Simulated assay, not measured.
Amino acid sequence: MRLVLVRHGQTPSNVDYLLDTAVPGPGLTELGERQAAALPGALADEDVEALYASTLVRTQLTAAPLAAARGLDVRVRDGIREIAAGDLEMAPGGSAPGERYMRTAFAWAAGDVELRMPGGESGAEFLARYDAVVAEAAASGAGTVVLVSHGAAIRTWAAARADNVDVPFAAGHRLANTGTVILEGSPADGWKALVWAGATVTPEGEGGPAGEELQARG
């Protein structure tokens, strides 16, 4: 299966660099709406057969233009919502609490899944809920599936599950609004990242796009 993970369009909280993870969350800014409108064109080469969004409003608004363009229903699932910030909710992204949020998430991807976000979920709980939606998508028989999700959730899940991506890679390659990570594989056989934010993912030591090396575990 080809799995296309898409971060939602820009929100007011993104503009203010706030750690805003609660449901239902804010809608999109005018720029976010334009980003969502551009998504069908950005994914024009993808034969999308199923489309999912999280329970946060911003992912559903981002998915709507793609759903309309492809004649697809948006399957809303709680499992692919953002990593819950717990006690760190609404902290500035560049603050100590914001940095702790990402350190905790990437610790999960590195294997410390019993670690818990302060006042929030554990890595095991996050990965289980995200895995469940991916497994549902795989079981549907669709060849290409789009999941409109969230930046930290996508980077953490991909670093934990893709055989050729490690934590330093995911930590060093942020996703802009409506940025994508494309993977291929299955829950049974594992996953390989093919594209990260528009750049081909190559094993360490092999040439990346424009002669640069995108460092991935390989």
Rank of each mutant, 00 (worst) to 15 (best):
M1I: 02
L3T: 01
H8R: 06
G9S: 06
Q10V: 03
P12E: 04
S13N: 12
S13H: 14
S13I: 01
V15I: 13
Y17E: 15
D20I: 00
G27R: 10
G27D: 06
E30N: 07
G32V: 02
Q35D: 02
Q35R: 07
A37D: 09
A38W: 08
E46A: 13
E46W: 12
D47K: 13
Y52V: 02
S54N: 10
R58V: 03
Q60I: 08
L61D: 03
T62N: 08
A64D: 12
L66C: 08
A69H: 13
G71M: 08
D73S: 13
R75A: 06
V76M: 09
D78M: 08
I80P: 03
R81T: 03
D87Q: 10
E89Q: 15
M102R: 14
R103E: 15
D112L: 07
D112W: 05
M117A: 00
Y130N: 01
A135M: 12
E136M: 06
A139R: 14
G141T: 11
V148N: 10
V148E: 05
A153T: 10
I154C: 07
T156P: 04
W157E: 00
A160E: 04
R161V: 00
R161N: 05
A162P: 05
D163M: 06
F169I: 00
G172T: 07
T180H: 05
I182E: 14
L183P: 02
L183C: 05
S186R: 08
P187C: 02
D189T: 12
K192Q: 15
A193K: 09
P203A: 07
E206Q: 14
G207D: 13
A210Y: 13
A216K: 02
G218A: 15
